[in-house]
């Protein structure tokens, strides 16, 4: 279990920074920055620029994404924004609008 969880029903407006994993099941507006993995769960709403080592999205994300390792947009996710990571996967059924930059 991640050490930081923004549970469903919680809204954070502002900036979140952490050295650990973070799981978002609620709403985050502003900025989200983690040294470890970021998970945006199904039902979550994130309107923020996201920085992390890796990012897994199953919910809704609006904002630019920068990940050191990988970004996985799962089926059912909805992402609007630019994605920058060395590895990016977009599952069948994921909605995505934005640029992808994979350090080619």
């Amino acid at each position: 279990m991640a050490s930081t969880v923004i549970g469903a029903g919680i809204t954070v407006e502002g900036e979140i920074t952490t050295d650990e994993d973070i799981v978002v099941a609620g709403t985050v507006r502003g900025k989200l920055s983690a040294k470890e993995a970021v998970t945006i769960e199904h039902g979550a709403t994130v309107e923020a620029d996201v920085v992390g080592s890796s990012l897994t999205v199953a919910g809704a994300l609006t904002g630019n994404v920068t990940a050191n390792e990988r970004v996985d947009l799962q089926s059912g996710s909805r992402v609007v924004g630019n994605v920058k990571a060395s590895r990016v996967t977009i599952a069948d059924g994921a909605l995505f609008k934005g640029n992808v930059d994979m350090d080619v």
Partner: peptide
């Protein structure tokens, strides 16, 4: 299954909601 702001996490801004924190 509520919300946890972990040891190394900093939140600058408002935290609202109807569940435990």
């Amino acid at each position: 299954n509520g919300t946890i702001i972990g040891r190394t996490t900093r939140v600058r801004g408002r935290v609202t909601g109807e569940v435990d924190l």
